[in-house]
Amino acid sequence: MNIRFWGVRGSIATPLTNAELAAKLETAVKLSIKAGLTDKKQVSGFIRSLPLHIRQTVGGDTACVEVKAADKLLILDAGTGLRRLGLDLVKRYRGNPIEAHILLTHTHWDHINGIPFFVPAFSSKNKLTFYSPYPGLKARLKNQQNPEYFPAPLSSAFKFVRLNDCDKFQIGDVKIETIPLNHPGGSYSYKITCGDKTMVYATDSEYKELSAGSLKPFTDFFHSADILIFDAQYTMLENVEKEDWGHSNVFIGIDMALEAGVKKLVFIHHEPAYNDKKLYNILKKAKEYVDINQSEGGLELFLAFEGLSMTL
């Protein structure tokens, strides 16, 4: 199973600003002077040595994750990251028909805004199917492209499959399960199993009741996942201040992942107000917490960024 992150931001697309780019460049140049660079050949190695928050950005596109399992192409959410995934698929398939299965967690803007810009939908030879437990999904997506909001209607290339709240189904050899999460208007988690490998995508969920009993339905669903992609939009404090906004934090994610025996925990749905430095600082604190919290060091932590690829 191959996983690639195309959009990792929550709430709204958040492009890097000119001021943020200038700050990264200024820091990098100062560090290059300090390092005593004298030759062009040293530049690549020097850039690779820089901290991640200086040499790259986590990215500004909203939720979209590509999963290739067996010979199937799955897409988790259709935020603005879907636009670049679509362009990449067109290049990769070189005119051959694209068959994609798009699993939607919910229909808030940051999870559907990429659909009007998904170039594979412009060709009727491609087979594109949406899955979700929401009634009237097609109507919701059509409304997003009403003339009041967008110049072109929803592509007729899309097909729709309605799921149940807690569903189990297969796409070829890929097994998929769903459970509802805690989010205003609802959201669903997807568990994808191929052979002996399992990944769970659980974004847009708030956990206000943290007793073992209250969390059990979720930790059972996450049980032994090789990868858990988890909504950690806020800091611990902001999570409390923004009660009922439907998101979580790294500390809750770590405790749930440890309880469930997860191997790799990936934080996603980054808060638009947090810059790269803050996000990597949150990851640093998360690593300190997990070091305190686990004795045998089985859980690995990752911050999702655009272009991150993981193989199971």
Binding site: L210, S211, M236, L237, V240, N249, F251, I252, I254, D255, N293
Partner: peptide
Amino acid sequence: ISSAGLRVVII
């Protein structure tokens, strides 16, 4: 103390 304890304290 875990996140569950921290949340009780801050709430």
